[in-house]
Simulated assay, not measured.
Amino acid sequence: MKVPQAGAVAAVIALALTATGCGGGEEDQGTLPIGIKFDQPGIGMRETGGVFSGFDVDVATYVAKELGYKPEQIEFKQVLSNDRELLLQYNEVEFVVASYSINEKRKEKVDFAGPYFVAHQDLLTRADDTSITKAEDLNSKTMCSVSGSTSAENLKKNLAPKAALLELGAYSDCVVALQEGRVDAMTTDNAILAGYAARKGNEGKFKLTGQSLSNENYGIGVKKGEKELQRKINDALKKMVQDGSWEAAVKKNFGPNYKYDPAPAITTGS
Rank of each mutant, 00 (worst) to 15 (best):
F112P: 02
Q73H: 13
R84P: 09
N217V: 06
G225Y: 01
K2N: 14
G169R: 09
V176Y: 12
G25M: 06
E94G: 09
R126D: 07
D56H: 08
V118D: 00
P41Q: 03
K162Y: 06
G148Q: 03
K223M: 05
I43L: 11
R182S: 14
S101A: 15
K200I: 10
D56V: 10
L168P: 02
G114T: 08
Q179C: 00
A185W: 05
K2P: 15
G35L: 04
E104Y: 11
L165Q: 08
S212E: 14
V3H: 15
F254R: 02
R46W: 02
A160R: 11
Y171M: 14
N215L: 12
I132F: 06
G50S: 07
G54H: 04
D128Q: 11
G181L: 00
G25C: 07
K207N: 01
G42T: 03
A177N: 12
Q5P: 11
V222R: 06
S140K: 13
E72V: 15
N154D: 03
G201D: 08
A177Y: 07
L67V: 13
D129Y: 04
L87R: 13
T209Y: 08
V175S: 01
P262R: 04
A248K: 15
V9L: 14
G42S: 05
V12S: 11
A119Y: 03
W246A: 08
E27G: 15
E203M: 07
A163S: 12
E247K: 12
Q78F: 04
S81E: 15
G21D: 06
M45P: 01
V59A: 07
A64M: 01
I266W: 12
